[in-house]
Computed example of a mutant assay.
Amino acid sequence: MRFSSPSFALVMATGIVAIAARQQGWPRLALLLFDSNVVAWLTLSLASMWRLARHRGDVAGDLASLQRAPAFFTAVAGTGVLAGGMLVLDVNFVFACVLGLLALVLWFVLTYAVFAAVITGEDKQPLERAIGGAWLLAVVACQSVAVTAALLSGHFAQPWRLQLNFLALGMWLFAGMLYTWIIALIFYRALFLRFAPADLAPPYWINMGAMAISTLAGAQLVANAAQAPFLEALLPFLKGFTILYWATGTWWLPLLVALTAWRYLVRRDALRAEGLDWSMVFPLGMYSAATHHMDAHVTAGLLAPLDTWFFGLALLAWGATALARTSLWWRGARARAPVPD
């Protein structure tokens, strides 16, 4: 029996909705979501370590698979979002440091392991089967490290403060370049190759989510400008690219809604529980958090109450997905249960 790689998309989605809840003035809901997120992260981490110890061949095969490899980046992003939640919710600074360091190590190991394995792999598939929104998880993973480093920097004295801000800046810039490479392939695939309703998988919402977390990282760098002279010198650049990332993510939103309506209303594709996925919740929550943070440090209240509206949408999507995934798991468990004689 083959065990698939555990996905930390649940941790990503729950963590960012918890952060958005804190921003919107819902501290109890934020802590409730955060506590459940810690349990989810621990459970998925143990499952990942068990799989690595018992099924190394499957892990190696997934690393070289164009369809399954992107799931590894959810471990980085989930760990980074959990670390950021600890800082924003003021839960535990030491654990936040440990998780931030773990996210950086995981990013380094998994980024080079995945790209090296895929590049050298022999099972090359056509572009329409190989590329999708899930590959932008590589961008999300990188930006999660940037956000965590930027948040941690304010808790350290010099020179660590400078070094963490420089790390955050470098990761932010590289992730923007990585998005450019990957989104060009995704856009080409969508425009010029046949696109069936089933091809519009939920991870395509990461087209927007990757830009939303890039906006959040940029806004945090702007907020940190007073801590680092090189950031202060780059303020026009930082603000300009932060708005560029936000505008790009915002551009994707109506198109993704239209394509989703085309799939389920025009082409009459059946809406199943599998269609509700955490990779749709994370971008909505991240868009709310990023818009709130950018409005506080870049656009000075110009975008209110857009962040509040999207927090409501993200919370509804989180609840609907939790119910759908629980129902799906329950039906699967009942189907596997032995039938009594």
Rank of each mutant, 00 (worst) to 15 (best):
W26P: 03
A30C: 14
W26R: 15
I119K: 11
G85P: 06
L101A: 11
D58Y: 08
R51A: 04
F73L: 02
R68K: 15
L87A: 04
N92F: 00
G80Y: 03
R28A: 15
L52M: 14
V98Y: 11
A103C: 07
V39Q: 10
F108L: 15
G78E: 05
L44Y: 00
F73P: 11
G78M: 04
A69S: 14
C97E: 09
V91F: 01
T43K: 00
L99E: 07
T111G: 09
L102T: 09
D123E: 14
S65C: 06
F115W: 14
D35A: 05
G78C: 05
Y112G: 03
W50E: 09
A18V: 01
A75H: 13
L99C: 02
F115Y: 09
S45T: 12
L106V: 01
V88G: 10
A20Y: 10
G100R: 01
A113F: 08
A113D: 11
D123V: 09
H55Q: 15
G121L: 08
D35V: 09
A71T: 14
I119N: 10
S36M: 12
V114W: 02
R54S: 13
F73N: 07
A18N: 07
T43V: 11
L66Q: 13
L104H: 07
L63G: 02
L33S: 02
F93I: 08
D62K: 08
L110A: 03
A60V: 11
S45R: 02
W26N: 14
V81H: 11
W26Q: 14
V114R: 01
